[in-house]
């Protein structure tokens, strides 16, 4: 079960240490929330447990460097989250209007995305599913199959522009 990728050690750089520190701080804060105290002893214990978990996961479960795969900055994540909440509420009100008036036109459309990273594509599909009114059915490469509650057009580009909103722009920017 030992991973063959891990035989040659990764270079230790300042960048990598900084990333580890950031993840460890996050783990320590979550540990503090779970144990309901932010006393220094608890935080240090949480940091130790988080570091051990991090190294064990790195060595035994993940076959490659996850930092390169799941690269998503902290502040970018926060901005994305707030944007997601705004979109959820906007679409929620429109869905409410459609429920009350009963104007439904459910259909499946196919849209294309310009993202090429599998992680970002799955994040986009997740956001589309979370926004009221659309559910991702299947993904295949860069094509997404989406159930759309108010299907006004079946053209992939036109539908994609309405459904994706500004998620794709936010995800494209590194």
């Amino acid at each position: 079960m030992m991973s063959s990728v891990d035989n040659h050690p990764r270079p230790v750089s300042l960048d990598r240490i900084l990333r580890l520190a950031r993840v460890t701080v996050m783990f320590a804060i979550i540990w503090g929330i779970f144990s309901e105290s932010f006393a220094p002893g608890q935080l240090i214990l949480g940091a130790i447990v988080g570091l051990v978990t991090l190294f064990a996961t790195d060595k035994y479960i993940l076959k490659q460097d996850y930092v390169a795969t799941y690269r998503f900055g902290f502040f970018r994540a926060i901005r994305y989250f707030f944007n997601l909440m705004i979109q959820i509420y906007l679409a929620g009100f429109s869905a409410l209007y459609r429920i009350i008036t009963g104007k439904l036109n459910v259909d499946v459309v196919e849209i294309h995305t310009e993202l090429d990273d599998p992680f970002l594509i799955s994040l986009l599909a997740n956001s589309i599913t979370l926004t009221p009114g659309t559910v991702t059915l299947a993904t295949e490469g860069r094509k997404l199959l989406v159930i759309w509650i108010n299907c006004s057009t079946r053209d992939p580009d036109e539908a994609g522009r309405i459904i994706k909103a500004n998620f794709e722009d936010l995800l494209m920017r590194r």
């Binding site: 929620g92 429920i99 659309t134 509650i149």
Partner: peptide, 16 residues
Amino acid sequence: YSRAVITSKVDTVGFT
């Protein structure tokens, strides 16, 4: 399909 689209989503907004 309209149930699947509507419920889970409106439910998400209400839950939040």
